[in-house]
Computed example of a mutant assay.
Amino acid sequence: MPARTSLTLRQQRLGAELRKLRERAGLTSTEAAALLGGPQSRISNIEAGRYAVSADRVRTMAHNYACADEAYAEALASMTGARARGWWDEYQDLLAPGLLDLAEMEHHATALRVAVVIHMPGLLQTAAHARAVMAESVPPLRPYEIEHRVSYRIKRQAVLYEGSPAPYAAIVHEAALRMGYGGRQVARGQLDALLAEGERDNVTVLVVPFGEASFPSSGQSITYAAGPVQQLDTVVLDTDHGCEFLDAEAQLERYRSVLDRMEARALSAEKSRDLIHRIARDI
């Protein structure tokens, strides 16, 4: 079987989870290969994500590793096979791989939870707001680069309304509502769009107001993408150098706690809407 020429985050994650299972079972890659009936290199390549693996083979490996969690094993099996092309592949030569991985992760998530302090959540941004934010990038983006990123960001938003959209919860600090990117007209349009998106059955917008004495955040945007089982959840941190993906158990637990604490300090959905209305009116 030919090796993959490029790896997605999802392919790498499957291999990493299979490696975790093997190591927890106390098996070397040579021992695991013997149980599977193949060379040691096969296990190494599967765990590195370099070779595709069938769902049945993943189930066999989970059995060999004494994995008693059937839901987890089936979730891993669902990640196998040839990857179907997604709309994000159109941007393969235009955007950094991390952005493509973000879109694929959102596509497969069973629920999304986001927290932002300065910027609006990407999936709730208008094109005009996104364009104004990207115009402030360092180093500066060329006009055509900005347009590529804006179109990509708008296409990502389809996860909120196409098919059976996953639940989406956004915790937004009041600071983000008042930043005013793009000027008065763009800022008001963004707030109106935020209110409209919050009307969707699957979307919840909660605002943390100024004056909240305790707020557990470093200021960076956080996305928590739920997988089919908790072991396959992923945290994405939006940094100046790109997307940082985290999936260690301790990291997932930490960010679940951070988001829980942020949500506890936010206004209710109804009071959040009232605050957004007041800010939009005053712009």
Rank of each mutant, 00 (worst) to 15 (best):
D247A: 11
E244H: 05
S272Y: 05
Q231V: 00
M262E: 10
T239D: 10
P216Y: 01
D233I: 07
D247N: 12
Q230Y: 03
S257C: 10
A269N: 00
F215D: 02
F210L: 14
R256V: 02
R254T: 05
I276S: 04
S218A: 13
V258Q: 11
F210H: 06
T239V: 09
E253M: 10
D274G: 07
S257G: 12
Y224R: 11
Q230K: 11
D247G: 02
G211T: 09
R273S: 10
A264Q: 14
M262T: 09
R281C: 06
L237P: 01
R254A: 08
T234Q: 13
E249T: 14
G219Q: 09
G242P: 01
D282E: 15
I283R: 05
F245W: 05
A280H: 04
R278K: 13
E249H: 12
A226T: 06
L259N: 03
P228N: 08
S268H: 02
L246F: 03
H277R: 06
A269M: 07
M262V: 15
S268R: 03
D247M: 07
D238K: 01
E263V: 01
S268W: 06
A213C: 02
L237S: 05
Q251F: 00
G219C: 10
S221V: 05
L267Q: 01
V235C: 03
G227Y: 07
E212G: 01
L246T: 08
S217R: 09
F245N: 11
A248D: 14
Y255W: 09
L275R: 00
V229I: 07
E249N: 11
V229A: 11
Q220V: 10
S272Q: 11
S257K: 14
E244W: 02
H241Q: 14
S272W: 05
E244L: 14
R265K: 15
L232V: 02
L267S: 01
I222S: 07
A226G: 09
E244Q: 13
D233G: 09
Q231T: 04
G227S: 11
I222A: 09
L252Q: 08
A248Q: 15
D238I: 00
V208P: 00
L275M: 02
F215N: 07
R256G: 12
